[in-house]
Amino acid sequence: MPKLIINETEAQMVVIVDEARIDAAIATRFKDRLREIVLRGRKPVQLDMRRVDFMDSSGLGAMIAVRKALPEALPLVLDGLTPNVERVFRLTRMDGVFDIRPVATQQE
């Protein structure tokens, strides 16, 4: 089961993704679990991505599916994107669709 640590307050839900890789080996379970969490919360979601060191297009697909599952008005912020993860969003132009916050130390 993908490791997701949930810290919920009245105003929002912070979900720490405690996985080093969001890849094809885990993407479907990650999508199902995260979708279940955000749909249950029904409040703005901040996804802490600092621990994710690698993501491929199946991981991106999972993120998109979760975004689509949320009502459009509910924010989903992807915080602390590492360079490898940020690259996938940037190359696929999904950086314009998601509210992403890369980590401060950029390598590119």
Binding site: G61, I64, T92
Partner: peptide, 8 residues
């Protein structure tokens, strides 16, 4: 209706 695949 965002695409969920076709990026590979």
């Amino acid at each position: 209706d965002l695409p969920e695949g076709g990026f590979g």
